[in-house]
Nucleic acid binder design. Sequence first.
DNA 1: GTTAGCACTCATTCATTTGGAGTGCTAATA
DNA 2: TATTAGCACTCCAAATGAATGAGTGCTAAC
Lengths: 351, 351
Amino acid sequence: MEEVLSERKEKILYAIIQNYLETGEPVGSRTISKYSDLNLSSATIRNEMADLEELGYIVQPHTSAGRIPSDKGYRFYVDRLITEKDQQITDMKEFLEQRTEKMEKVLKKVVKVLATNTEYATVISAPSVVRNRVKFVQLSAVDERQILSVVVMDGNIVRNKMIQVDKPLDNETMLKLNMLLNTNLNGLTVNEINLGLISKMREQAGIHEDIIASVLNTVADTIDPNEELEVYTSGATNVFKYPELASSESAKELISAFEEKEVLADFLNDVQEEEETKGTGIQVYIGGESKMSTMKDCSVVTATYELGDGVKGTIGIIGPKRMDYKKVVENLKNLKSELGKVIDQSEDSNR
Amino acid sequence: MEEVLSERKEKILYAIIQNYLETGEPVGSRTISKYSDLNLSSATIRNEMADLEELGYIVQPHTSAGRIPSDKGYRFYVDRLITEKDQQITDMKEFLEQRTEKMEKVLKKVVKVLATNTEYATVISAPSVVRNRVKFVQLSAVDERQILSVVVMDGNIVRNKMIQVDKPLDNETMLKLNMLLNTNLNGLTVNEINLGLISKMREQAGIHEDIIASVLNTVADTIDPNEELEVYTSGATNVFKYPELASSESAKELISAFEEKEVLADFLNDVQEEEETKGTGIQVYIGGESKMSTMKDCSVVTATYELGDGVKGTIGIIGPKRMDYKKVVENLKNLKSELGKVIDQSEDSNR
DNA sequence: GTTAGCACTCATTCATTTGGAGTGCTAATA
DNA sequence: TATTAGCACTCCAAATGAATGAGTGCTAAC
């Protein structure tokens, strides 16, 4: 697996891939011979290409067609690309930390910008709040039979739940319950709310333990993976721009993945977990490298963003294998400043 | 415009449409001659068909092809279909009124059921709350600089907004503001909150009038059309099942409409308004009849549902012109009982 | 008024042809 | 020994054209 290419082979391979990225057509020896700066005849190129094919970097769709990069070829290209750039985009922190009231809005705008910029399908997952801390809890009696529970997490993520009760609670009890909840839950991550704490709270709540249970459920809902498929998408229809995706049977699968979103959410989750062990900021999945069967004809570039305190989300850009990796990576890099603009705008429009 | 068709012409037209709905292919005179119960030769049918074409009910895609229904032809068919059935599906009230905590969930399930049932693209708008009443307002201090405002509307629609303040408010002021808000806003629809009331409240709030303004903004946001594009979709990829849609250029437009949703939201809004003047429960828009240019190759069947107190939403089912109108209409009729099931399930899964 | 029959029109399908792009190989060249 | 020119060969894609058949419009007969 660890073969070393001669410099000339590398250059040729690079040229082939570059060219294929632009045109989407198989590229022949003559093209390279003219296009590249290493003055070689087509025949020589052909010889080298035969070698590269044997090594598995390029393939021929059919006899007497030009060559196109194999997954291995793309991998070569991408690895070289990524190492050129620095690795992390973890510092949007200062933008979003506490200031924005509606993270949702910002995320929606971000995907849209990315999608129009890159002309690829784009998806972003809202920060997962597994490690997120409870900041504020409150119960309020909406009417005699219904109590509204509001939970605010770090990053101002707000969740509500209506709790039905059989008979009204008096003011004092409400106050007591609120106190109980806040003192016990405040500052905890959802992971830290364990059974011991729960039973302790239930005990203290006395006859109102069912309400406590409901509130805890609300908190749990906040990280419930079903609840948590907060995934925003944009530009799914961009796939139509790339014939090799549009025509393939999988186009509709792709689109439908973008509609249903569960697959995407799962994928982004996986990426994020993987990311935590590897930690290289930007990942590229070429063809089958991502485990999504839907994506076997695509490449996915992912980036993890962080808003401090382990509040992390993931961005994915999905395009054909011949996607413009350079542009995509740069776009993700620029995201930070883009985000700055977006937020300025949204504040303007809030006035 | 008000021509009357002979009974025989009607029968033939009906047969043509019926047949075309099934096959999607242009239908010729011979087919009708054999298929229908009115024993006529193909030649006779041909004569009648020539007449029907002249009258604009059917068209020939090209010389020497069979005939397909024109928009006018579909209209004939649909009108006849709808008048057969009774007209309203306004009574889901008893299901959703106050009981469900997460309307969102139910709606998502409803679209999904409809989409898989009918095999058409489906869209549903969350109840518009223009006429909805404020039930409960509360401000809470989350920390020194931030106040969370929660507004609950009829139907338990909850909205939150973070309000930034320059310096902390003491408990007493909070209490006063809460009182002020609740007594003034409770039971009002958003339309009823007029300038007079606003300035009156601002006055009473004294130095904290900016906070009142923010809360009122939250209430206003609740009906802000931008905010209000609460539209759920499902089955967009069903369009691929119908060649006449999938192949047409507009397929991508359709899909992208389903992704961006704004167009759909606008459309559903229009429908709802129109519905309020006409009030016939089920509407069918054939081709250009809906003002959405994206939909000129489709038909849309819409139905308005009501949860009592003017809390209304709209369902739209989008398919090819040759969609199975009968099935769709019946499906919408059955929605009520479907909804019943859905809600039972969701209550089960809540335990 | 209805029907049979026939000539005519197109879309579609299939096989065939053609052009061209690109390869692999071989022999000549530096 | 590495490079290049040249040529035969392959195969795809687009163009061409013939065959098919569904369907019509018209006319003449019933």
